[in-house]
Design a protein around this nucleic acid. Sequence first.
RNA 1: GGAAGGAUGGCAGAGUGGUCGAAUGCGCUGGUCUCGAAAACCGGUAAACGGGUAACUGUUUCGGGGGUUCGAAUCCCCCUCCUUCCGCCA
Length: 438
Amino acid sequence: MLTLKLITEQTEKVIRGLEKKHFGNAKEAIDKAISLDRNRRETQQKLDACLAEQKKCAAEIGALMKQGKRDEAEAAKAKVAALKEESQAFQQQMNEVESALTAHLCTIPNIPYDIVPEGSCAEDNIVVKSSLRECKEGDTVGNWDTVPANTEAKLPHWELAKKYNLIDFDLGVKISGAGFPVYVGLGARLQRALINFFLDEARNSGYTEIMPPTVVNAASGYGTGQLPDKEGQMYHCEVDDLYLIPTAEVPVTNIYRDVILDEKDLPIKNCAYTQCFRREAGSYGKDVRGLNRLHEFSKIEIVRIDTPEHSEQSHKEMLEHVEGLLCKLELPYRILRLCGGDQSFTSAICYDFEVYSEAQGRWLEVSSVSNFDTYQANRLKCRYRRIADKKTELCHTLNGSALALPRIVASILENNQTAEGIRVPKALVPYMGCEIIK
RNA sequence: GGAAGGAUGGCAGAGUGGUCGAAUGCGCUGGUCUCGAAAACCGGUAAACGGGUAACUGUUUCGGGGGUUCGAAUCCCCCUCCUUCCGCCA
């Protein structure tokens, strides 16, 4: 959530930011936050004064008791009883205002950085870079018509998966349901190859590998913002009140919940491979065909915790890392800077990576790399102590997929079809043990 | 799953109703001493939320929540987690 400091000190900027994100009634929402905050502070002042008086009286009674002045002590007790009633009322008011304020702040999204383009939908996203051609000012998804040169009719990945016996979707339906594919033989090996390749690449870029739990408690869900609003997107084990993670971001980022880090330890760079679970309620049609959208899939996530001064540099390095992966996998890609309206609720700036799927004739999103500024850290209470003045400040948090497997597998299969079989990208040959999937 | 014990500052660990935000030790940090270092000695060393330009100052926090009391780290109730023993078991 946004900090009250930002809302009260830079109100106009916040309102403009929310409008850029196409958040309705920005002014109204901010005014409400400010008024709740004022109410909270006033209530606290009254409560504090009341409690201070109460403490003072209690100390006096103690002193009187010691001196044996019982009568005076009894008289003072009556006074405290009245004060206590008053302070309890203030306390209740305080609790109510505070939870109303927090609940309200949770409904307000993060504000975008200045360089985030204006726009309301995916068409307005800016193409900043592509492996296919130079990008120029004004290139957007809406006017982008470049596709790889070699696009004669080819098979989509769900047919290739069957042809080469790599993935059995029907078997997955039998065992679990739609969206739970069974990887077989070289198909399974390709999963392991990609996981190892991505983890090795992350380690070579200085990320510390984490293997976290894939099931988390509610507190962690709140920490990264999946709860309370996205409750329906996660699988929930009711008996134990635990949630299956939708991404490794949840357990890894929550490592730093309620933590004060040393500035010298920043940036923290973690990577993690986990299975990810998503209910994907409401998805349908071509979006869910084959590997395009699954209930369970493998993903390698990179997470950074950094200082405000250095987080932009960190974000740049993360983008370069992800781009490097796509280059090594020899896939045709483009990088989008998302416009205000298409950005996620929590990000301050976000870049999407898309790979062209020849057989499907469309671009598939394979990675999002975001900087959340202090938005996530504020809810997590993730802070660091500055070396200069020893003050604590909120950290910046960043994360990105590097990468999620299903759509990468789809693109590798579809983009590498030859008469002999599926050509394995050079970088994966050592992991696959073969140059071609027959 | 059954039984017992426990949860205190960065760490270890005192404290069982009244200046306790909390002894002591370690760690960290500033200083004295020294050519320098070590040792020794002296001092500092939690966070959140308020008020104040500031110096400073109020409140809250001893796993979490509730209760008793004029007053709770300390007494009572509930919850969570940890340890040990028994049972079960990759």
